[in-house]
């Protein structure tokens, strides 16, 4: 494997966004790119990352390899990279280590690290293709704000989407709260728009602790997409350039 990223910031942010949710992960490398799928310890949430080969330049992967990496270790090494450094990942066939180099675009500084790999016996889950009943695309900062504000009151949030819009409601010991958003087009700045596409009304309840955690990815993208259907996991997607993505799935709370 040899994969060169123009900006180390992308990998730094991805790892930062998932490291509190999942610890030891296989980075599955093949000629289409680098993928990661992992559940949190309590099997409530699933992280699915895809960094397409087009996000790297150049990208070369001659044989499929799984790089088992501890994300705490990777975080320690990535801390040594500046956001605008050029980052190159390298691994041999049947590797013991993954090699990372960080090159400063402005100076002749080159740093190089090896991280020991681990054997991780990870189960891959089959994520079915789903036609979601409701898809909401909103500013990622807005979604972060809603989850943060409501998590101060309650452990869980009900998300209801109807043709009127989407409503986030919570009930806690000190009282209750809600935030409603309507479809809204911002003509000055499309990134601030709220798009709602609905085929049938949905109402689901989720743990806010996980949603707050997912929002650590907000720095990766101005926009976030929420996909919901009744009685299936919520999909929270942060799109990256070149069709790469970071997706989180969250199992709903089960009704009384």
């Amino acid at each position: 494997l040899e994969a060169r990223l123009e900006q180390a910031a992308m990998l730094k942010r991805v790892v930062d966004a998932i490291k509190d949710l999942v610890q030891d992960c296989n980075f599955d490398c093949n000629d289409s790119g680098i993928a990661l799928q992992a559940m949190d310890n309590s099997h409530v949430a699933l992280v699915s990352m895809m960094l397409k080969s087009e996000s790297f330049s150049p990208f070369r992967c001659d044989r499929n390899i799984a790089l088992g990496i501890n994300l705490t270790s990777l975080t320690k090494v990535l801390r040594a990279a500046q956001g605008d450094d050029i980052l190159t990942l390298k691994a041999e066939d049947a590797p013991d280590v993954v090699n990372l180099t960080f090159e400063s675009p402005e100076s002749d500084r080159l740093s190089e690290y090896d991280i020991k790999l681990m054997d991780i016996d990870q189960e891959h889950l089959g994520i079915p293709d789903t036609e979601y009943a409701a898809t909401i695309t909103l500013p990622s900062s807005e979604f972060s704000r809603i989850t943060r504000d409501l998590s101060a009151l309650s452990e869980s949030v009900a998300i209801e989407c109807t043709k009127e819009g989407v409503k986030f409601t919570c009930t806690g010991d000190i009282g209750n709260g809600s935030v409603s958003l309507r479809q809204h087009t911002n003509v000055e700045n499309d990134a601030k728009s709220v798009d709602i596409s609905l085929t049938e009304p949905v109402a689901l309840t989720f743990s806010l602790k996980y949603l707050v955690n997912f929002c650590k990815a907000a720095g990766l993208s101005d926009r976030v997409r929420l996909c919901l259907s009744n009685e299936v996991p919520l999909l929270v997607e942060y799109g990256l350039s070149n069709n790469s993505y970071l997706r989180f799935y969250l199992a709903p709370k089960i009704g009384d």
């Binding site: 559940m39 309590s42 099997h43 409530v44 949430a45 699933l46 189960e123 891959h124 889950l125 089959g126 994520i127 079915p128 743990s207 299936v232 996991p233 799935y249 969250l250 199992a251 709903p252 709370k253 089960i254 009384d256």
Partner: peptide, 14 residues
């Protein structure tokens, strides 16, 4: 964690 669904009951093992 009562009332919390498990992701594996929605997405089967590959």
């Amino acid at each position: 964690n009562p009332g919390q669904g498990n992701i594996m009951s929605f997405f089967g093992k590959k």
